[in-house]
């Protein structure tokens, strides 16, 4: 009887969360799918009509889509490469006995807490500006011509900015994983005559593999929808050179007011993210069983 009661209580306690999340998931997404089949522009209210797959056809055959898709992949892959390699190296470094280790760690993780708009504007103006930026000054004083990051290599600039934000995250997680490596195992390997390189490849890296997987998956989810950094630095330009899918959908919706087209783009973005999410959920699901 008591168990029956407490089971009902448990259901009631979970219900509000489930209902809210269910509504949050179903209603807007359902509307997006519905809009994606309409010809619907906010500038021409009252002219909505069924458009079939036309929005998808326009969105997917628009050359901007292919550019945005490639840029999205470039941002994800570029930032992942920098943060994983850099993160492993930094984690190995911070795992050593360093004087003032706590403070160094605080310095390294700080960028993660800076809001994206601040990060992007500080880098854009105070570092990457070709006239007044610090990087330009460095280049000039070394006798080079200053590089105009955001005009000439906008995508690389965005990758650098976003990588600076996410390197601390990768470092922190990999360091946490590294510190759970059994000290005795390391000593045993050393006793057996394993050099630092083989210790790294045969002991440390396998131990880190799960943490690396988690970092890759979580970062990918966030990196697929990098937005603020693009909005305040390049506005997706020049041309579409630094437009990703998230920014393309935003531009279509709130700059061109094309609800139908933007919704089709949104559905495409959801499908792409779901493919990634499938892997992430499987990886996390495994840890639930453990």
């Amino acid at each position: 009887m008591a168990t029956q009661n407490s089971r009902t209580a448990a259901r009631l306690m979970v219900a509000p969360s489930v209902i809210l999340l269910f509504i949050w998931m179903i209603v807007p997404l359902g509307l997006t799918i519905y809009f994606s089949f309409l010809r619907y522009n906010l500038l021409m209210p009252g002219t909505e009509q069924w458009a079939g797959l036309l929005n998808y056809q326009f969105f997917l055959t628009d050359p901007a889509f292919l550019t945005a898709l490639v840029n999205t992949v470039m941002i994800v892959v570029g930032v992942l490469a920098i943060t994983i390699v850099g993160g492993v190296l930094l984690a190995l470094l911070l795992d050593q006995p360093v004087i003032g280790q706590g403070i160094v760690r605080l310095l390294v993780i700080a960028p993660f807490f800076v809001m994206p708009t601040v990060t992007a504007l500080v880098w854009k103006n105070m570092f990457m500006n070709p006239v007044n930026g610090l990087l330009a000054w460095l280049q000039t004083s070394m006798g080079f011509t200053p590089h105009d990051w955001l005009a000439v290599t906008p995508l690389a600039a965005i990758i650098v900015i976003v990588a600076w934000q996410w390197l601390p995250f990768a470092t922190l997680i990999l360091l946490t994983a590294l510190q759970s490596l059994d000290e005795e195992q390391k000593e045993a390997a050393e006793m057996d005559g394993a050099g630092p390189v083989s210790r790294f490849f045969y002991l440390v890296l396998p131990h880190l593999s799960r943490a690396i997987t988690v970092v890759i998956l979580i970062e990918t989810i966030f990196l697929l929808s990098v937005f603020a950094e693009i909005l305040v630095t390049t506005n997706g330009g020049p041309g579409n050179d630094s437009t990703n899918i998230a920014y393309l959908v935003y531009a279509q919706a709130l700059l061109q007011f094309d609800v139908g087209g933007a919704s089709a783009g949104g559905v495409v973005a959801v499908i792409l993210a779901n493919i990634v999410a499938l892997f992430l959920l499987r990886a996390i699901g495994k840890t639930l069983e453990a």
């Binding site: 489930v18 509307l31 997006t32 919704s263 783009g265 949104g266 959920l281 639930l288």
Partner: peptide, 24 residues
């Protein structure tokens, strides 16, 4: 367990996917 995974999966939905209806 399924419920927890499902809740997490709502987090994977990219914001742009629902930007238009939420805005409207």
């Amino acid at each position: 367990k399924d419920l927890l995974m499902w809740m997490l999966s709502t987090k994977m939905m990219p914001a742009v996917g629902v930007l238009v209806p939420i805005y409207l």
